[in-house]
Structure formats: C-alpha cells, structure tokens
Design a binder for these strands. Structure first.
Length: 893
RNA sequence: GGGCGGUUAGCUCAGUUGGUAGAGCGUCUCGUUGACGUCGAGAAGGUCAGAGGUUCGAAUCCUCUACCGCCCACCA
C-alpha cells in the first residue's frame, strides 16, 4: 500500500524524469543487424530561436512514433539537430546589429560570421532545452548541425558530384532578387502580397499601353502584341522610335501568344532584363530582335534596387523614387494618358518582406531536366526520378492527397538557383583563376567586383587548387535547402561509410508540416535519390498548421499566439502533447485553445488518481504477483480484461496506420469511462481483485506512454518497477484474456444500473434518496445475484429483490432490458402528469423506430440484398422493441 | 487562371471498404457516496450545406450549385 499526493504536479517530476531517461542511455539505439531499425531524422529547427507550436506538434508526433517503436523492441533512432538557415539567421543577426547601429559591412565578412556563430551557439542551447522540455526522446549523442564539419563535407561532395555530372552550371539568367538581402531567392522563396498600385497609361510611339512600372521604360527593348490581334498584326517585326524621358529609343514589335488582348490596350512594353515574363518572351522571340538589330537585354536596376548609371538623371535613385520622378517628367512631356487605381500581387521576399526585383544575374543553377541518373538502359533527370519514387509507392505520403500536389510541383519545376549572395552558409567549392593584379582588384571589394570572376577559368574542388596560380574562392554560399536536402544521410556520417549510415539509412518516417513539402521534403527526395540512388525515407507524414480557437493563424501581430513553453510551465508537458495530437488528422489544420490543454491536464490528474486508488488497494504481496489470465475471478475482472484486450488490438492498428488521434482518444475513453467509472467503482465493493486492478492499469500506462511519457513514467516508478517504462515491452493482444460471455453479462448489469439511474434522474428522485427495486432476471438470475452488491451501491438502492420471474407489480415503474424487467415502486415520489407525458413521448419515439425497421424488413429489396447477419440483427431488434413497447404501456398511470 | 480540400450537436472536430450518426468542450438538472470537485450521476441538442442521381439502403459513391479555405501560376 502506497500513498501518493492528491494531485499530480508535473513541474516536480518532468525534468528529473527526462534526465533519468537520457542518462540511462534509453535514447540510444543498440544496433542489431538481425532487426530492421526505425529511424526519424528530426526536421532541424532553424538556428534562429525559439520553439513554437509548429515545433511542438512535430516533436509530439515524432516522439509518439519513436516511443511506440522503441517499446516494440525495434532499434529506434531519432536524430536531433539544427539548421543554419542561412538567410533567416543572417537577417536576424543583422537586425540585432542594427539596434547597435552596426551593419555587416562595418564588421566585414569574417567578423560578421563570428557574430553569427555566437548567436547560433546561444540559440542552440535554447533549442536543445526546449526540445527536452517537450519530452523528446532523441539521441543527443548524435546531434548534428548543418554547418558541422561532416555535413559541410557532405555538401561539398554532392556539389562536386553534380558539377562533374554537368548538372550544375553557372549562367546569366533572370532571377528573383531581394535588394534588402542583396541575394537571389529560389522561386518558392518568393511570397506574394496584394497591393494597391497605379496603372499608368502611356503614349508609346504608335501605341498607348498600360504599365504599373513606368520606370522600367528605360530598359524597354520591344512592344509585344498578340499575333491574333487585328489591331496590331501588321506591325509585328517593325521597328519604332519611341519618345522617352531620356530621349528617343528604338523598339521592335514582337508577336507573342502570351499577351492578353483584353487587358489594357492589348500591347505590352517589354523589359526583358527586369521581368520574368518579358525575359521569357524575349527568349522566344530571339530572331525578331536579331533581325531588328536590337539587344533585348538592357539592364537598368542594380543589386541594391537602384537605377544604374545608364539611367541619366535618374541614376542612383531607388526604383520607387525613380517612378515618382519619371511620372512627373512624363506628365510634363504629355505622354501620360491617364492613371488608374489598380490592385495586384507584389512579389516579396519570404524572409524580409521586401519587394523582389527581378534582374539578370550570374548564378549557379541545378539543371533539373538533364538525364543523368542511370536507370537500366535509360537515363532519368533528377526530376523524373523524384516523381517516379512516389508514383511507384517507394515513398508513401500521408495523407495521400498531397501526392497530387507533389507531382504538380515536381512536374513544373524549373532549374534551381542554388547560389546566394549571403555570407552565412556553405561556401560554393569553386575557385577562379586570376592574375595577381585582378586578384588584388577583386579583393578590394568582392561585392562590387564580381565581374572579375571568370567562370571559364573556374575549378570545382573542395580544396583550394594547389599550384602557382592565384585562385579566388567563389564568394557565394549555397541555398540553405541544398544542405538540408542531404539531412537524412549527412547526419548519419556520409560521405564516410559509417556503421550508422549503413544500418539506419534509408530512414523510416519523415514527419513535418505540409507547408514545407516543397522547400524541404521534395528537395530531400531529389538530393538523396540522386546522390545515393536510394530514397531518403519510406513514409512522409504531414501534419497541419496549428490555429487558434477561431481557426485563425496564430501570429504575434494578432496576439492570438499560444506559447508552448508557457503552457508547459502552467499545465505540464503531457497535456500540451495530448492537446496537439488528439483532434488532429494528417494534413489538416487544427485549432488549439488553452481550454483544450486544461481539459487534458484534468485527464492526467485522473490517471494519477486512478493510480492513487490502485496503489492504496494493492498490498505488498499483491505487487509481487505476476498477472496471468487465470487470476481473473469476477465477471467484472473478465469484462475489463476483455475490454483491455480489444483496446490493445485497436490501438495497435491505429498506431500502425498513424491514426494517433484515434488511438489517444480510445485509450482516454477506456481509462476514464470504463476503468475508472465502472471497474474501479465496482472494485470498491465485494469483488476487489488487486492483481487485475493493477495489471489493467499498468497495461494502460504502457499504451499511454508514447503520448504522455512523463506522468506514466512517474507512476511506473511508484509501482516499484525496476525497468523504466520507456524501455518496457509494448502490450500485445492476448486471446486468453477474452471472455465473451462474461463481458456481455457485465454489459447487462451496466445497462440495468444506467437505466435505473436514468429513470431516477428523470423522475427527480434525489441521489440521497434510497429506493427499492425488484428485478425479474430470467436466465440471468445467477449473474444478478452475484452482482447484487454492485447494483445496490451503484444504483443507490435500499432493498433489492431478485427473482427469476414474477407478476406485474401494480403502481411500480417498469424498466425493461431485453426480456428482463425491473420494477421500481416509486408511487409516492412522482409527478403523475409529467410522468404520463414523458412516457407518451418515449413510446412515440419507440414506435417510430419500430415502424422504420418493419418497413425495412417488409422491403423485398432489403430482404433479398442485405447481408443475412444484418437482417437477423434487425429482426431481433424489432422483436425486442415490440415487447418493450408493450411493457411500457404499464407505466401509464 | 490551374489544382486541391472543406461544409456533421452552440463551439472544435471524429466517422476506416454504403446498413437511419459519435467525442471533447460548452449548456441544463442533481450530488461533500471510502482515488480524483482538475470530480461523480443524468439530460437536452443534428432533414450530416442545397439539389439531383446510383442503390433495397447514402454523412459515406457520382453530377451540379452555393459558401469557405489552402496551394500553385501570376497579366503588363
């Protein structure tokens, strides 16, 4: 007999329990080549900072999978780590420096990177603590960081391999450029924001055309029209002189299908150097430009978003300033016809929100269409291969609906721009040969003198080329997703052929939010199938976004955010985990409120108190007894064991199908509504069986452990178990604990008690008032005799008479259950009028059901086509209802 | 513009091969019964968005409509 506190206090135990797990080595798998391991690479949080709910739900779900598999006896590995998140982190540090009025240029590259490292080290300490707070059972001895030496080597090796395969090339193309970050961005790193702008109608030689960006007129080289457009058809191929604010200039008219005849005047000015659509149009119409002798590319905006020197008096202005000035000048010249309000989508940087400036720049790209992966006689592009592994089912995406999204994205993938003009990140392993003079010149200002990097004299190599020539390292760093694309295998020691790599790769599950399916998941598939020729993971499980109570996105500005750490401090980790898992289905967003967390805190306390009761009722001696099915004595024992067995069975199915919410709910229901409300209550009477009481509880604790590891582990410890629960064996089905007859019997007792309770409540008989009851139990007389004490106590009876059968008892209320009858002599306690009304309503309800079932049974089609079992069940139900209805009439006063 | 998804109790959502609907929270009534008031007992509450179709039978499958949401593309 053990006495514990009345309420569970999470704060007192959680940190200690975590420490105990970690120091015991339970998080570290033992490599056993006879067994297939279960592996998850934790999506590495950005090294920028604090844990939010997105991380919390990720950690909760992954820890559930990990603990479940570990308890199955599978060697289980969960690798934690952090991502350097180049742009995000660099921006963050720049912001911090800005508070001290320092820019990165003040510090210089080297010093700035030292600052970033300091910041990252600090963040990592926080992140580690926060991951621990969530109870995550990951293997810290294998923790990795994308800028680790080993991972950096992996990145360089893959780059070199791609370079040798001619998959990587350096080229001048139009790119998304963020003038604030002064870097390129990948297509999917661009966000769009609706913005109220102006549409300027400009007189343009023989045309009038509409534009939102009059300042780009300085870079125009053509006017495009739709070849089907009768108005302009004859002008295609001709050259025109256009009056401009800096004097006249020449354009050629090109015909392009993409021009919308309905929009504006149907004629578009073309600025290939500063618009994606225009760039593509120029490429499609190369010959027209050539014929006209016009160079399509006229660059007018620089990397800082300012007008270039070729823009005369506008040179040096930002594009915005230039627009204002140029519109004024155009007005003066009388070439502005009208200005309209216009709303459209502005492209902005996903990291800093600054307006994107498309411009032409020399960058490194990955060719996604070049056939390079050998597949039998054929060769496949990385894009094709990545589509194939999902199509063939080698990788399964949960929920399935994201397959389509994935294919759609992959199929439309363009060459991936991987170079970033960011200081923080993996340097591109390319070296440029230069003479001494150029090198000196270059090094004075690498940012500005990039043009000196001659890629015809470039060498791709991890080490600096070692000879007498002068070499300059490529100043750029790689897109952060390049390195995270290697995450599943770079963390396992690749390119070294380590034991870890050989044993644990490919990983089992990749669990993450659907919002980074493209950013990360798709890139891991690309990079891994290309580099290793194998998939990175077998299953992708995508969770949804966490929203607030009203389904709104949580954000700082809206003030509706919930801080997981604050909730943990208030309620404990277990409730936070449960509230993030229950009610969530893969791929769907989920609402979270503090109420919900509080509700699960109550559940945790319920478990604590159920255990408290059990511990108080189990003697020293009983503790030592090992449960076996023959110890089940009473009907209640057999019922709860049968229920437990089906719980175990259903839970296992749910866990295998990744239905964690269902699994959690089912265990919740079992513990609260079956174990506590019935079995435990019954146990307070004559039929106490401490061994079963404890066995059922302990099995339930095991099932709950992946969901709520802390409280279950604490209780396990209190039960004086030697092993920690984290390393216990997961419950299996045991057919010997199925007692069909007894389980059904107890359900009948439960039903009778519920019906008496319900009637008492309907008739407003106070709980304190004890009443008499007579049960005609028929064949079940023995069962009801056995359960006499339970019925009296739980239905709050004074006297209970149990007979096999008997006469009607006049004036007593009748409850029926099957062929059983229960009479409650309540004559004096009832409001007759209300009671008559109630009975009439109930009888009407019953009649309705009877009618619909009879209709069904007299329907030829139903009888012919429905399964026999169903028909039999319906018939039985009908008979029962009819007899109950007949008996109900007796209750009419 | 292209694609995907949603619409079930007051709220948040389950519903697994089609067999007349479930949970949590909230609401109402009652209750200091030997673990728990972070509790217990009981109750009310739904034409499963609308219309049509397939079927003996539809929340579930098909078509259309309405409203909501997301992703992708981005038009000057």
């Amino acid at each position: 007999m053990i006495e514990i506190e009345k309420a569970y206090e999470a704060k007192k135990y959680e940190d200690k329990i975590y420490e105990k797990w970690e120091s015991s080595g339970a998080f570290k798998p033992k490599i056993d080549k006879k067994k297939k391991p279960f592996v998850i690479s934790m999506p590495p949080p950005n090294a920028t900072g604090v844990l939010h709910l997105g991380h919390a739900v990720m950690l909760a779900l992954e820890d559930i999978m990990i603990r479940y598999n570990r308890m199955q006896g599978t060697p289980t590995l969960w690798i934690p780590g952090t991502d350097h998140a180049s742009i995000a982190t660099q921006n963050k540090v720049e912001q911090l420096l800005a508070q001290k009025k320092i820019t990165k240029y003040d510090l210089g590259r080297e010093e700035f990177l030292k600052e970033v490292d300091k910041f990252v080290k600090n963040s990592q300490v926080n992140i580690r603590n926060q991951i621990r707070k969530m109870g995550s059972s990951c293997d810290w001895t294998r923790e990795r960081y994308t800028l680790d030496k080993g991972l950096t080597e992996a990145v360089q090796q893959v780059f070199v391999k791609m370079y040798k395969d001619d998959l990587i090339y350096r080229g001048s193309r139009i790119v998304n450029w963020c003038p604030r970050c002064e870097s390129t961005l990948a297509d999917d790193e661009v966000d769009y924001k609706e913005s109220g702008e102006k549409l300027y109608w400009i007189k343009y030689g023989p045309f009038t055309l509409a534009t939102t960006r009059p300042e780009t007129k300085l870079g125009d080289s053509a006017v495009a029209v739709n070849p089907k457009d009768k108005r302009y058809k004859d002008m295609i191929g001709k050259k025109y002189m256009i009056k401009g604010v800096l004097g006249d200039f020449e354009v050629v008219v090109i015909g392009d299908e993409s021009v919308d005849m309905e929009f504006g005047s149907g004629a578009v000015k073309v600025t290939p150097a500063h618009s994606f659509a225009d760039f593509e149009m120029a490429q499609r119409n190369k010959s027209a430009f050539k014929k006209a002798g016009i160079n399509p590319i006229k660059e007018i905006i620089d990397e800082k978003g300012r007008m270039k020197d070729n823009c005369g008096k506008y040179a040096g202005m930002t594009t915005k300033e230039c627009r204002r000035a140029i519109v004024e000048d155009m007005k003066e010249m009388g070439i502005i016809e009208k200005i309209e309000d216009y709303t459209h989508n502005l492209s902005i940087c996903y990291r800093c929100g600054y307006t994107i400036e498309p411009l032409i720049s020399k960058q490194w790209f990955v060719n996604v269409d070049k056939p390079v992966i050998k597949d039998g006689a054929k060769k496949k592009s990385i894009k094709e291969k990545s589509i194939e592994v999902v199509k063939k089912g080698e990788i399964e995406i949960i929920p399935e609906k994201f397959n389509k999204t994935y294919f759609n994205w992959m199929e439309n993938l363009h060459d991936w721009c991987i170079s970033r003009q960011i200081w923080f990140g993996h340097k591109i392993p390319v070296w440029y040969k230069m003479d001494e003079k150029s090198k000196k010149e270059y090094e004075k200002n690498p940012e500005k003198n990039r043009y000196l990097l001659n890629d015809k004299e470039a060498i791709c190599s991890i080490e600096k080329p070692d000879n007498k020539n002068h070499y300059v390292h490529d100043p750029d760093t790689l897109d952060t997703w390049f390195s995270s694309g290697l995450w599943t295998f770079s963390t396992l020691g690749w390119p070294d052929k380590t034991e870890d790599f050989k044993y644990f790769h490919p990983t089992s599950v990749l669990e993450t939010g659907y919002d980074i399916l493209f950013f990360w998941v798709a890139r891991m598939i690309i990079m891994t199938t290309y580099t290793l020729g194998e998939i990175p993971f077998k299953t992708v499980y995508l969770h949804g976004l966490i929203r607030d109570k009203n389904g709104k996105k949580m954000s700082k500005s809206a003030g509706n955010g919930i801080d997981p750490l604050e909730m943990i401090a208030k309620y404990g980790t277990d409730p936070v985990r449960l509230s993030l898992v229950i009610g969530g289905t893969p791929g769907n967003d989920m609402c979270l409120s503090e109420d919900k967390i509080e509700g699960y805190r109550n559940f945790i306390n319920k478990i604590w108190n159920a255990s408290r009761f059990a511990l108080m009722n189990v003697s020293e001696e009983d503790f030592k007894k090992k449960f076996n099915p023959s110890m089940a004595k009473s009907t209640a024992d057999k019922w709860i064991l049968t229920e437990l067995n089906s719980l175990v069975k259903a839970t296992n199915i749910d866990m295998e199908k990744y239905n964690f919410s269902e699994a959690g709910m089912r265990i919740y229901d079992f513990l609260w509504n079956k174990y506590c409300d019935w079995y435990l209550e019954i146990s307070k009477g004559d039929h106490k069986n401490p061994v079963v009481l404890l066995h059922v509880l302990k099995t339930t604790l095991k099932l709950l452990h992946p969901f709520i590891p802390f409280v279950t582990e604490k209780l396990w410890e209190l039960m004086e178990e030697k092993n920690m629960l984290i390393s216990e064996e997961w419950p299996k089905e045991d057919k010997k604990t199925i007692f069909k007859k007894e389980a059904k019997d107890l359900e009948e007792v439960r039903e009778i008690i519920s019906k008496i309770r319900s009637l008492r409540s309907e008739l407003k008989v106070e709980p304190a008032k004890k009443i008499n009851a007579i049960i005609y139990a028929g064949k079940q007389i023995k069962l009801f005799e056995e359960k006499r004490e339970v019925i009296i106590r739980m239905a709050r009876l004074e006297n209970l008479q149990i007979e096999e059968k008997g006469k009607k008892i006049e004036g007593a209320k009748l409850i029926t259950h099957g062929s059983m009858e229960v009479y409650l002599p309540l004559k004096d306690m009832i409001d007759t009028e209300k009671e008559t009304k109630r009975i009439k309503e109930e009888m009407a309800k019953k009649e309705n059901i009877i009618n619909s079932i009879s209709a069904k049974l007299s329907n030829e089609g139903f009888v012919k086509n429905a399964p026999k079992e169903l028909i039999a069940r319906e018939k039985e139900k009908l008979a029962e209802l009819k007899s109950e209805l007949a008996k109900m009439a007796q209750n009419m006063v």
